[in-house]
């Protein structure tokens, strides 16, 4: 009987020890879980801040690009038109009323053209409103300025008008990506033909740009660390969970295909 009681006592003592250890390990587990949760939240917060900083940077770059376009337009287009108007008006001989009338008419036409150009430029000044009418319109505007230069043969298929979905943050990044790609083409590609194709399907936005320029070796650029524009493109695409496929062959041009989950 005594032995049985001793056995029960041992059982109870061991049981109690286990029953005290269980809450101890439970508390340890909860502490570890909460610590991981805290780290995860901090990580998320950091990522959010990074994204916001990147968005701000993108906006600044878009505005900078717009300013450059406006400056070029004012110098090359409006400036020339107004100079021509001044020359025409200066050459008016009031004694010859028939010729003077024609010159005044011509000057008026030049002034009207200048006003039209200035209106177009004014639209661009609202850099942040560029994507307000949708990514389709923003891309179209970007292509319009490119076509105005007359330096490239363009083939454009823009199917992004009247999209039922929108994502202003992504729109801004997509527009900046296109600007960066076009800039790279203008600065380095020496192309004569550019093909731009953009469309939306299966909750994905596709943007494809192809040109017939001199091409380059991506690995070489990466090694020389000169491809900063490309790095920035890759970084931004990664930020919005997109994909980029780049194909380039020396003297055979470059093609860039971008896929972005949208909206």
């Amino acid at each position: 009987m005594q032995s049985q009681t001793t056995q029960i006592a041992i059982l109870v003592a061991v049981g109690t020890l286990i029953f005290l250890l269980v809450p101890f390990f439970l508390v340890m587990y909860i502490r570890s879980y909460v610590r991981h949760k805290k780290n995860h939240v901090l990580e998320k917060e950091t990522m959010k801040q990074k994204f916001e900083a990147e968005m701000l940077q993108t906006l600044v770059e878009v505005q900078d690009q717009t300013m450059q376009t406006i400056a070029t337009e004012l110098h090359d287009n409006v400036g020339q038109l107004l100079s021509l108007t001044t020359l025409t008006l200066n050459s008016i001989n009031l004694g010859d009323s028939e010729k003077a009338g024609k010159k005044i008419e011509s000057s008026l036409s030049l002034v009207n053209k200048s006003i039209k150009e200035l209106r177009e430029l004014a639209k661009l000044l609202h850099g942040e409103q560029l994507v307000e009418n949708g990514i389709g319109h923003a891309i179209e505007q970007e292509i319009n300025w490119l076509s105005k230069s007359g330096a490239y043969e363009l083939k454009v298929s823009n199917q992004l008008f009247d999209l039922q979905v929108a994502s202003p943050n992504k729109d801004l990044i997509i527009l900046r990506l296109l600007q960066e790609i076009i800039n790279n083409i203008i600065k380095h590609a020496k192309a004569s033909y550019i093909e731009i194709d953009c469309y939306y399907a299966h909750e994905t936005l596709y943007l494809k740009v192809k040109e017939n320029g001199i091409g380059f070796s991506y690995d070489e650029k990466k090694q020389k660390k000169t491809g900063m524009g490309l790095n920035s493109i890759y970084k931004r695409i990664e930020m919005i969970n997109g994909k980029l496929v780049l194909n380039s062959k020396l003297n055979k041009g470059t093609s860039i295909a971008i896929e972005i989950p949208y909206p």
């Binding site: 029960i8 059982l11 109870v12 109690t16 029953f19 005290l20």
Partner: peptide, 12 residues
């Protein structure tokens, strides 16, 4: 800790 730890002694 208190109530879980005391379970075995309560039962016996």
């Amino acid at each position: 800790f208190y109530y879980f730890g005391g379970t075995t002694s309560n039962l016996f």
